[in-house]
């Protein structure tokens, strides 16, 4: 099978892939994106472009992804089902592919309750697994959801998210299997800090025979400070930062905490590289894109 994107190619060659993340600006500035592109270009295989993350209005992920394409950086366009019904979703997928966007990550999306506009009506017409299946049918059958034959099918490399740290834990692998069955080619996980739990999840996935059916990219986020660690653990949905990590950050002088965060991140990446069933790493350096080059170089991923 011909590969669908550079990310796909890298993964199918059995190489350890690296993806980064770029949050579009809260405005129409092309320059902000270009700055982020410069910081990431050359260090990662592809970059996730978030879709109104945490339900805060930002430049659309399609438009921002198109800017990446224009600069030769491959985007993974994130798409949430919170804001669009199936008609808009399919239309956006067709449009995105026409703009050269070849990877998509299918998500439910954070609830708007904590976003900048909690008064909004949400959509949730289809769920994230339905979205995966929709993109797959558009790609492989060349049909939209109504069964209509598309003139050109969007041939996208399809991703989905997994959170091994959410509950109920026993169900997490069933859900992974469902995403794979629906058509997910790759999985990006929630940030890993609790390695024991991640290892257990990968083991269960392997037991279910899922390890060879999908590429798994482990998520990492370098912690900037002990305060950030505590905040994420308490406030960010589905985040699990063990007490040891928070203590470790606490034990470091404030001005060196960022370095320690990067060190923890590098240790995690090292473990991921050696773990069977893990095919790459997804580095989410939230508003800290400068850190990505450093991490990639020091982890020997370049």
């Amino acid at each position: 099978m011909k590969t669908l994107s550079r990310l796909h190619e890298k993964l199918s060659n059995g190489e350890f892939a690296v993806t980064g993340e770029c949050g579009p600006p809260r405005g129409s500035s092309k320059e902000v994106i270009q700055k982020k592109i410069k910081l990431l270009n050359g260090f990662v295989d592809a970059v996730n472009v978030t879709d109104n993350q945490t339900a805060i209005v930002r430049m659309s992920s399609i438009a921002a992804s198109a800017h990446l394409v224009a600069q030769g950086l491959e985007p993974v366009m994130q798409m949430v089902v919170r804001d669009r019904n199936r008609i808009a979703i399919q239309s956006d997928i067709l449009g995105a592919y026409s703009l050269g966007i070849k990877n998509i990550l299918c998500l439910s999306g954070d609830h708007q309750k904590f976003g900048s506009q909690p008064d909004a009506m949400n959509v949730f017409d289809i769920d994230s697994i339905n979205l995966v299946r929709t993109v797959k049918d558009m790609r492989d059958k060349g049909k939209d959801m109504s069964g209509f034959d598309l003139d050109v099918a969007p041939r996208m490399f399809i991703g989905a998210a997994a959170n091994p740290f959410a509950d109920p834990f026993e169900y997490r692998v069933i859900r992974l299997a469902k995403k794979i069955d629906a058509g997910a080619d790759f999985i990006q996980t929630q940030c890993i800090y609790n390695m024991d739990r991640f290892r257990e999840w990968i083991r269960q996935a392997a037991d279910e025979g899922l390890a060879d059916k999908v590429y798994i990219l482990g998520g990492v986020t370098p912690l900037k400070s002990a305060g950030m660690a505590r905040y994420m653990n308490n406030k960010v949905a589905g985040m699990d930062i063990p007490e040891e990590i928070i203590k470790r950050m606490d034990g470091i002088d404030k001005k060196n905490q960022a370095d320690e965060g990067i060190k923890i991140c590098l240790e995690t990446i090292q473990e991921l590289k050696e773990m069977d069933g893990v095919h790459g790493v997804h580095i989410m350096a939230i508003e800290w894109e400068e850190a990505v080059g450093l991490i990639v170089e020091q982890a020997g991923l370049k």
């Binding site: 439910s108 954070d110 740290f165 959410a166 859900r175």
Partner: peptide, 25 residues
């Protein structure tokens, strides 16, 4: 809270919904 039909989202923790600690998932 997200009308999901194919299983819980990644925000479900300790039996609670991500939107509010008083709402069961």
């Amino acid at each position: 809270s997200k009308k999901l039909l194919n299983g819980p989202c990644g925000g479900s923790q300790k039996g609670l919904c991500e939107i509010d600690p008083d709402t069961p998932c």
